[in-house]
Structure formats: C-alpha cells, structure tokens
Design a protein around this nucleic acid. Structure first.
Lengths: 139, 139
DNA sequence: TTAAGTGCAAAATCTTTGCAAATGT
DNA sequence: ACATTTGCAAAGATTTTGCACTTAA
C-alpha cells in the first residue's frame, strides 16, 4: 500500500480517498476497464463525473493509459513504469479483446510488428487490437 | 450510375433516394465517414435515424464495412467487392488515421502482419489503426 | 488558508427503439 | 396491395462543463 501513496505523490496528485481506491484497483487488476464499469463498482465512493476526472488526471500524469477497444469503448489500464511518463505514453503493444469474457488485456510482451506504409504516409502511433479467445476462456 | 442501382438490387435493398445518394457517396469517396459527418451533409435528404438505419443495412448486406478509428468513432467505407459478402467482412488491412486532416482511409494494399500470441490466446479478428500524416497532408 | 478536488445539475453527443405515415415493387 | 422504408418523438448511454461546497496540504 506504500506504493499507492508514493505514486500519487510522485505524480503531484492529492491523495484523496477515491484516487487511492482507484489506483489500488489498477494495481490489482490487469484488464483494461471503462468508466461505466468503474461507475458500477465505485458508485458509493464517487460521483460519475469524479471518475471521469480522476481517469483524465491519472492519464495525464502517466499512471494509466487509454485504450480504444474493438467496440470503440475507451478503457484504461496501468502504465508500464518504464514506458510512460507525464503526458507521454508508449503503448505500442498488442491489446487482446476476448469475445467470450469481454476482457481487454495489454499483452506487454507482444509488440506491434513494423508495417511498411505507402510512400508519403508517415506513421506516428500504432494501435493493434486482436479479438479472440483469451487464456482464461479457452476450454 | 448504373452500378449503384445494380448493387442495391443485388443486395436486395429497395432503391430509395437516400440509399442511392449514400451509396454514390461511398463510391466516390475513399475516406471512411461517420454518421455525424453524414448527418451534416445529408440533413436535407434524410433524418438522422434513417442514416443510422441505412448504414446498418449497407453493412449487413456487405456494401460497406465499419471501422473503429483511433478516437473510438465508428466510421464506414466501401467494401472491397472480392472480400466482403452478406454479413461476412474481411477487413484485415491497415486503417490510416491522419492527425492533420482527421481522415481515415483503408490501405487495402497494406495487410496486417501476423503476430505471435502467447500460448492459449486464440486470435480471430485483427484491427490495426495507424495514426500519422497522410499522403495529402505531407508538406 | 487556499488551491485542488468533488458533487450536483445541466447540457452536448451519439445511438437505439416504437409506431404511424409514406414509398417502392 | 403489401411489405419495406422513413420520419418523428422519445429515451438511453456516454462524456463534458459550470459552479458552489469540501478537503488535502
């Protein structure tokens, strides 16, 4: 639990109850979660709007990163400490969307292969979503 | 103009004014377009709800396919005739999102490279969005 | 104390649904 | 004539904004 306080401190964020709860959530759970899902879990602890604002603050400070999943839903997951910093994310790994349990996980160990684009196209950022059946759901 | 009528016929869709207009739009424009954008262009010709329904019908019949762009917005573009049929889309090419002009185009000639997933993950569908500067916007 | 954070109300989007009226075949 | 398609009204879902109140430091 030390780490939660330290991280919020390091990010220059005040250590409020909801922020501590949410950051602990991200530390404990790998799958990327959406605001509506968080709202169900944390309705008693914070207003919907506060959740949106905490997510934005966490993202700006490099604590979590935003993923757009295959359905177009915005989801958030903990940043890899070595890759993400203030406002600058390196999120260039595969995001796996399970069609069975609907979880979206970062496969940090699977990087996005390079792609040869036509002349005059300049790539800056990549997003590779793969849909299928995940580790937990395979029979 | 022949081709528009024929395609709608072949898809088993009635040839209404708005459907003809929209299908002609897709034939003439490569970039994928969203419903809100179409609404601005076609406000005089059809209701918002009709646009949603025409897009769904076109997608079901394999005339257009849906793309989720890097911002999570649903966009639609013409299907490649050889790859898409009734309810069955093969959309496994790169989608390029230009951060300058905000256009999203299908790079049909750039296929998604294969990715080696960890044991127990089974891939079914891929979506690769690349953000950067497009052909038209490079200085 | 005071700047940052939160809650509430309200609005802005985007999308879906139901039903009556209009249209294509 | 009849099934399909459309328009309108309404509701649901997601996200943003403004402002007064509260809380961390």
């Amino acid at each position: 639990m030390e780490s939660v306080i330290e991280k919020l401190d390091a990010a220059g964020l005040r250590k409020t109850e909801i922020r501590i709860r949410l950051y602990e959530y991200f530390l404990k759970h790998k799958p990327a979660i959406s605001q509506p899902e968080l709202e169900k879990k944390y309705a008693k602890y914070a207003d919907r709007v506060t959740l949106y604002r905490v997510l934005s603050a966490f993202e700006e400070k490099g604590l979590i990163h935003k993923i757009i999943d295959m359905h177009g839903t915005a989801r958030y997951a903990l940043c890899n400490e070595h890759n993400c910093h203030d406002g600058h994310h390196h999120d260039e790994h595969v995001h796996f969307n399970c069609s069975n349990c609907d979880k979206v996980v970062c496969l940090e160990e699977v990087s996005i292969p390079s792609v040869k684009l036509p002349k005059n196209y300049k790539a800056v950022k990549y997003s590779l979503n793969i849909e299928g059946v995940c580790n937990d759901c395979k029979a």
